[in-house]
Amino acid sequence: MKELWNLLKQGTKSSLWAAVINIIVGIIKTIAYFITGNVAMFAEMMHSYADAANQFFVYTGSALSKKAPTDRFPNGFGRLVNLVLLGAVLIVGILAYETIKEGIHHIFHPEGHQGWFWLNIGVLGLSFVLEAFVLTKAMKEVTEHVPAPKKKGFAIVMQSFKHVKQANPATKLVFLEDLVATLGALIAMLAITLSSYTAFHNATGYASVLIGLLLFIVVGRIFLENAAGALGIAVPEMENKIGMIAIQEPMIQDIKRLNVIKEGDQRHVELKVEVNPKVTIAEADDMRDALEEKIKSERGVTDVIIEFDEDDQVESWSIPRDKRK
């Protein structure tokens, strides 16, 4: 039980916040539904509860992926978060389908003005504020490695979009899902205003279809990235960076093989280097310890395997020796 608690403390905080906030929003929408009897509010209520379950699912997966390797699973559980997210996108996909289906129904069968305008706007406005709070939390996780001066104030928004590709899978899902939820609240408020005070009574239907399409974009992107992550995807930009770190070592003559594999938010490095045959075992061992420490200081790197081979005088690494420091 203690191990499980320690793992849960390492889960992605933004997904936990998202689960809690969506439960609160769901309760508020439930109260609004019982007061107004609005079918659209009922759909929003179910949407919030489904999102809460989904995010809690993601939080649990991100936490369990930190579990240490065992005899049965010697490579660890890093890819578990990718498998969990593949299940999570199915939930989001079903929500997107139901949202579009409901929207199409309202386009062809608009309900017009149903009253309780300010209650609906108030609930959606509060939902917008709470979803924006979670989105801000996700932005902070996405940009945690960015220097503070570069993400001060509204600059964090641009930095979040710039670095979201490098974020861990769970944070990325929270960021994209809550981005759609925040935009969706604004779109829904505009649609309710138009349908209540203009002849455009099917505005809520079009809004629902638009939100559903945005969710499908999120589903497609998250599915493709996590399918690749579940298989074990290379990280070329980190391979280049680690290669430059390794090749600066005076004893290393060449790099025979370098692989950086991304598993969840973990990076596994496998490195085979060529050294002068005159280098002693003790010297090579000291160099390996120092190099491992340097590589592990890079963001996300959890383990490093370094092998040695005799220099065959055939250039394998792309940086010529005369251009190395």
Rank of each mutant, 00 (worst) to 15 (best):
F117M: 05
A167E: 03
I100G: 00
M41W: 03
N276S: 09
K165S: 11
A228E: 08
Q313I: 12
L210A: 06
E102D: 08
K162N: 06
F133A: 13
Q166H: 06
L194Y: 00
L231S: 12
V157K: 03
E298R: 14
T302K: 14
T143H: 01
W118S: 14
L16Q: 06
M41C: 10
I247A: 07
E274S: 15
T182Q: 02
N54D: 06
K294G: 14
N6I: 12
I261M: 03
R288C: 06
K13Q: 07
K272I: 15
G232D: 12
W317H: 10
K323W: 10
A185S: 12
N22W: 03
K278Y: 01
H105Y: 10
Q159C: 09
I21Y: 01
M41F: 06
K2P: 04
A96S: 11
V174T: 15
T302V: 10
A234V: 04
V301N: 03
S208M: 06
E3G: 15
L4P: 03
R221A: 14
K256F: 09
E293K: 14
L135G: 11
V209P: 00
M238I: 13
A199I: 11
V58E: 06
L190W: 00
Y97I: 12
G76C: 07
Q10S: 13
A138W: 02
T70I: 07
E111T: 13
T36R: 08
R321E: 12
V260R: 02
F175I: 10
R267H: 05
N75M: 14
M238R: 07
E274K: 15
G264P: 04
D51A: 12
I281P: 05
F175L: 07
K150A: 15
T204A: 05
E283P: 15
G205I: 01
E293P: 05
I104S: 04
I24A: 15
P250F: 01
K296F: 06
V157H: 02
L183C: 13
V89D: 05
F175K: 08
A148D: 01
Y59E: 11
Y197V: 06
E292I: 11
T171D: 09
T136W: 09
G300D: 08
T143L: 01
L213F: 10
I187F: 02
I306E: 06
T302A: 11
F154E: 07
E274T: 14
L179E: 00
A227M: 13
N54M: 07
L64I: 02
P250Q: 11
K101P: 01
K67F: 05
E225F: 04
I222D: 08
M41D: 04
E102W: 02
G300W: 01
F175N: 07
L258D: 13
F216M: 13
L271P: 00
M251Q: 09
A88G: 05
F133L: 08
L271Y: 01
A203D: 00
Q253L: 08
D71E: 12
M287Q: 09
S297P: 09
P110L: 14
G93W: 01
N276I: 04
H106I: 11
A88F: 02
Q114F: 10
G212H: 00
